[in-house]
Amino acid sequence: MIKAENITVCYRMSHDRIRSIKEYLVALVKGKIKYEEFYALNDVSFEIKKGEVIGIIGNNGAGKSTLLKVISGILRPTKGTVSLQGNVVPMLELGSGFDYDLTGRENVFLNGAILGYSEEYLKEKYDEIVAFSELGDFIESPVRNYSSGMVMRLAFSIASMVNPDILIVDEILAVGDMEFQEKSYARMMELMSHGTTVLLVSHNLDQVRDRCDRVIWLEHGNVVAIGETQEICDRYVESMRKT
Protein backbone atom coordinates (compact mmCIF):
# COMPACT_ATOMS: atom_id res chain seq x y z
CA MET A 1 0.00 0.00 0.00
CA ILE A 2 2.69 2.45 1.02
CA LYS A 3 6.26 1.65 0.18
CA ALA A 4 9.01 4.00 1.24
CA GLU A 5 12.49 3.33 -0.03
CA ASN A 6 15.58 5.04 1.33
CA ILE A 7 13.88 8.36 1.97
CA THR A 8 16.40 11.05 2.76
CA VAL A 9 15.46 14.65 3.36
CA CYS A 10 18.43 16.93 3.59
CA TYR A 11 18.06 20.62 4.33
CA ARG A 12 20.83 22.96 3.34
CA MET A 13 20.87 25.46 6.10
CA SER A 14 22.90 28.58 5.56
CA HIS A 15 24.12 30.08 8.80
CA ASP A 16 22.21 33.26 8.29
CA ARG A 17 19.21 33.11 6.07
CA ILE A 18 19.73 35.14 2.94
CA ARG A 19 16.58 36.89 1.89
CA SER A 20 17.57 39.61 -0.53
CA ILE A 21 19.60 39.86 -3.68
CA LYS A 22 21.95 42.35 -2.05
CA GLU A 23 22.69 40.06 0.87
CA TYR A 24 23.14 37.18 -1.51
CA LEU A 25 25.61 39.07 -3.70
CA VAL A 26 27.55 40.35 -0.72
CA ALA A 27 27.78 36.85 0.69
CA LEU A 28 28.71 35.46 -2.71
CA VAL A 29 31.51 37.96 -3.19
CA LYS A 30 32.85 37.31 0.27
CA GLY A 31 32.66 33.60 -0.46
CA LYS A 32 30.66 33.20 2.67
CA ILE A 33 27.79 31.12 1.44
CA LYS A 34 28.30 28.06 3.52
CA TYR A 35 25.64 25.51 3.97
CA GLU A 36 25.29 23.15 6.82
CA GLU A 37 23.67 19.93 5.83
CA PHE A 38 20.96 18.80 8.11
CA TYR A 39 19.33 15.45 7.70
CA ALA A 40 15.72 15.56 8.77
CA LEU A 41 15.31 12.01 7.53
CA ASN A 42 18.15 9.67 6.78
CA ASP A 43 17.66 6.58 4.67
CA VAL A 44 14.23 5.63 5.97
CA SER A 45 12.60 2.57 4.44
CA PHE A 46 9.44 0.74 5.37
CA GLU A 47 6.41 -0.91 3.93
CA ILE A 48 2.85 -0.58 5.10
CA LYS A 49 0.05 -2.91 4.14
CA LYS A 50 -3.49 -1.92 3.38
CA GLY A 51 -5.62 -1.39 6.46
CA GLU A 52 -2.76 -1.21 8.92
CA VAL A 53 -2.71 1.44 11.61
CA ILE A 54 0.85 2.61 12.04
CA GLY A 55 2.07 4.73 14.91
CA ILE A 56 5.07 6.97 14.53
CA ILE A 57 6.83 7.87 17.76
CA GLY A 58 9.94 9.74 18.70
CA ASN A 59 11.11 12.88 20.43
CA ASN A 60 10.65 16.37 19.13
CA GLY A 61 12.76 16.90 16.03
CA ALA A 62 12.98 13.22 15.29
CA GLY A 63 11.54 13.72 11.80
CA LYS A 64 7.98 12.54 12.37
CA SER A 65 6.28 15.52 10.77
CA THR A 66 8.79 15.57 7.93
CA LEU A 67 7.96 11.94 7.23
CA LEU A 68 4.26 12.74 7.10
CA LYS A 69 4.94 15.62 4.72
CA VAL A 70 6.94 13.38 2.44
CA ILE A 71 4.22 10.75 2.36
CA SER A 72 1.47 13.27 1.70
CA GLY A 73 3.51 14.74 -1.16
CA ILE A 74 4.04 18.20 0.31
CA LEU A 75 7.77 17.73 0.54
CA ARG A 76 9.78 15.96 -2.10
CA PRO A 77 12.56 13.83 -0.58
CA THR A 78 16.13 14.66 -1.54
CA LYS A 79 16.70 10.99 -2.22
CA GLY A 80 14.53 7.91 -2.28
CA THR A 81 11.00 7.25 -3.38
CA VAL A 82 7.57 6.81 -1.91
CA SER A 83 5.04 4.80 -3.83
CA LEU A 84 1.47 4.53 -2.71
CA GLN A 85 -1.93 3.63 -4.06
CA GLY A 86 -5.14 5.43 -3.27
CA ASN A 87 -5.97 8.92 -2.14
CA VAL A 88 -4.16 10.43 0.79
CA VAL A 89 -5.93 12.77 3.16
CA PRO A 90 -3.70 14.64 5.56
CA MET A 91 -5.23 15.93 8.77
CA LEU A 92 -2.26 18.02 9.69
CA GLU A 93 -3.68 21.32 10.76
CA LEU A 94 -7.32 22.21 10.71
CA GLY A 95 -8.70 25.23 8.97
CA SER A 96 -5.53 26.30 7.21
CA GLY A 97 -7.42 26.82 3.97
CA PHE A 98 -10.15 28.99 5.45
CA ASP A 99 -10.88 32.40 4.08
CA TYR A 100 -12.27 34.48 6.89
CA ASP A 101 -14.23 36.81 4.62
CA LEU A 102 -16.27 33.99 3.14
CA THR A 103 -19.29 32.40 4.76
CA GLY A 104 -19.19 29.01 6.40
CA ARG A 105 -20.96 27.49 3.42
CA GLU A 106 -18.45 28.92 0.95
CA ASN A 107 -15.62 27.73 3.13
CA VAL A 108 -17.00 24.20 3.20
CA PHE A 109 -16.65 24.06 -0.57
CA LEU A 110 -13.33 25.90 -0.71
CA ASN A 111 -11.72 23.82 2.01
CA GLY A 112 -13.26 20.65 0.66
CA ALA A 113 -11.80 21.39 -2.78
CA ILE A 114 -8.39 22.01 -1.27
CA LEU A 115 -8.58 18.68 0.55
CA GLY A 116 -9.32 17.06 -2.79
CA TYR A 117 -13.03 16.27 -2.51
CA SER A 118 -15.12 16.25 -5.65
CA GLU A 119 -17.99 18.65 -6.15
CA GLU A 120 -20.62 15.91 -6.16
CA TYR A 121 -19.25 14.39 -2.97
CA LEU A 122 -19.29 17.74 -1.18
CA LYS A 123 -22.82 18.55 -2.29
CA GLU A 124 -23.96 15.15 -1.10
CA LYS A 125 -22.22 15.45 2.25
CA TYR A 126 -22.89 19.14 2.83
CA ASP A 127 -25.86 18.69 5.15
CA GLU A 128 -24.01 16.07 7.11
CA ILE A 129 -21.03 18.41 7.55
CA VAL A 130 -23.21 21.25 8.77
CA ALA A 131 -25.10 18.98 11.10
CA PHE A 132 -21.91 17.57 12.56
CA SER A 133 -20.44 21.02 13.14
CA GLU A 134 -23.59 22.10 15.05
CA LEU A 135 -23.22 25.59 13.58
CA GLY A 136 -26.84 25.93 12.59
CA ASP A 137 -27.66 29.26 10.96
CA PHE A 138 -24.14 30.53 11.51
CA ILE A 139 -23.13 28.59 8.42
CA GLU A 140 -24.40 31.47 6.29
CA SER A 141 -22.38 34.18 8.03
CA PRO A 142 -18.72 35.00 7.40
CA VAL A 143 -16.18 32.92 9.28
CA ARG A 144 -14.59 36.03 10.75
CA ASN A 145 -17.67 36.29 13.01
CA TYR A 146 -17.11 32.80 14.40
CA SER A 147 -15.62 32.02 17.75
CA SER A 148 -12.38 30.04 17.56
CA GLY A 149 -14.22 26.97 18.82
CA MET A 150 -16.71 27.29 15.98
CA VAL A 151 -13.93 27.58 13.42
CA MET A 152 -12.33 24.43 14.73
CA ARG A 153 -15.65 22.59 14.75
CA LEU A 154 -16.35 23.50 11.14
CA ALA A 155 -12.81 22.63 10.09
CA PHE A 156 -12.97 19.29 11.82
CA SER A 157 -16.35 18.51 10.31
CA ILE A 158 -15.02 19.13 6.81
CA ALA A 159 -11.77 17.28 7.31
CA SER A 160 -13.40 14.26 8.89
CA MET A 161 -16.08 13.85 6.23
CA VAL A 162 -13.63 11.84 4.21
CA ASN A 163 -13.41 8.35 3.00
CA PRO A 164 -9.72 8.12 2.30
CA ASP A 165 -7.58 5.13 1.46
CA ILE A 166 -4.74 6.56 3.48
CA LEU A 167 -5.30 8.86 6.42
CA ILE A 168 -2.46 10.86 7.86
CA VAL A 169 -2.99 12.14 11.37
CA ASP A 170 -0.71 14.43 13.35
CA GLU A 171 -2.02 13.87 16.87
CA ILE A 172 -5.56 12.72 17.29
CA LEU A 173 -7.66 15.82 17.11
CA ALA A 174 -10.18 16.54 19.74
CA VAL A 175 -11.50 20.06 19.40
CA GLY A 176 -14.18 22.26 20.88
CA ASP A 177 -15.98 21.86 24.16
CA MET A 178 -16.16 18.64 26.15
CA GLU A 179 -19.16 17.35 24.29
CA PHE A 180 -17.73 18.07 20.86
CA GLN A 181 -14.36 16.65 21.90
CA GLU A 182 -15.99 13.36 22.67
CA LYS A 183 -17.89 13.44 19.43
CA SER A 184 -14.82 14.26 17.39
CA TYR A 185 -12.75 11.64 19.16
CA ALA A 186 -15.38 9.06 18.37
CA ARG A 187 -15.41 10.24 14.79
CA MET A 188 -11.63 9.82 14.50
CA MET A 189 -11.85 6.34 15.93
CA GLU A 190 -14.57 5.51 13.43
CA LEU A 191 -12.44 6.77 10.56
CA MET A 192 -9.48 4.77 11.72
CA SER A 193 -11.39 1.56 12.08
CA HIS A 194 -12.91 1.27 8.63
CA GLY A 195 -10.09 -0.62 7.02
CA THR A 196 -8.36 2.65 6.24
CA THR A 197 -4.59 2.72 6.29
CA VAL A 198 -3.64 5.17 9.01
CA LEU A 199 -0.40 6.88 9.84
CA LEU A 200 -0.63 8.34 13.31
CA VAL A 201 1.90 10.61 14.93
CA SER A 202 1.31 10.96 18.63
CA HIS A 203 3.07 11.73 21.85
CA ASN A 204 0.29 10.02 23.71
CA LEU A 205 1.71 6.52 24.06
CA ASP A 206 -1.51 5.16 25.51
CA GLN A 207 -3.33 6.09 22.34
CA VAL A 208 -0.61 4.48 20.24
CA ARG A 209 -0.67 1.29 22.30
CA ASP A 210 -4.44 1.25 22.05
CA ARG A 211 -4.83 1.83 18.36
CA CYS A 212 -1.77 0.85 16.37
CA ASP A 213 -0.88 -2.44 14.78
CA ARG A 214 2.75 -1.53 14.34
CA VAL A 215 5.02 1.31 15.35
CA ILE A 216 7.88 3.17 13.68
CA TRP A 217 10.32 4.71 16.13
CA LEU A 218 12.32 7.59 14.74
CA GLU A 219 15.29 9.30 16.33
CA HIS A 220 17.26 12.14 14.68
CA GLY A 221 15.95 11.21 11.28
CA ASN A 222 16.90 7.56 11.58
CA VAL A 223 14.65 4.61 12.10
CA VAL A 224 15.50 3.05 15.44
CA ALA A 225 13.01 0.24 15.17
CA ILE A 226 9.93 -0.89 13.36
CA GLY A 227 7.80 -3.56 14.85
CA GLU A 228 5.08 -4.79 17.13
CA THR A 229 3.41 -1.99 19.08
CA GLN A 230 3.82 -3.04 22.70
CA GLU A 231 7.43 -4.11 22.31
CA ILE A 232 8.58 -0.93 20.58
CA CYS A 233 6.66 1.27 22.98
CA ASP A 234 8.27 -0.47 25.94
CA ARG A 235 11.72 -0.01 24.46
CA TYR A 236 10.96 3.65 23.73
CA VAL A 237 9.81 4.29 27.30
CA GLU A 238 12.87 2.50 28.61
CA SER A 239 15.25 4.60 26.53
CA MET A 240 13.46 7.73 27.70
CA ARG A 241 14.01 6.75 31.31
CA LYS A 242 17.71 6.15 30.78
CA THR A 243 18.39 9.63 29.54
Binding site: K69, S72, G73, I74, V88, P90, L92, E93, S96, G97, I114, L115, G116
Partner: peptide, 9 residues
Protein backbone atom coordinates in the same frame (compact mmCIF):
# COMPACT_ATOMS: atom_id res chain seq x y z
CA UNK B 1 2.35 29.44 2.50
CA UNK B 2 0.18 27.80 5.16
CA UNK B 3 -1.68 25.79 2.55
CA UNK B 4 1.44 24.72 0.71
CA UNK B 5 2.86 23.49 4.00
CA UNK B 6 -0.20 21.46 4.86
CA UNK B 7 -1.81 20.03 1.76
CA UNK B 8 -0.46 18.75 -1.49
CA UNK B 9 -1.85 20.66 -4.46
Amino acid sequence: ATLINKVYV
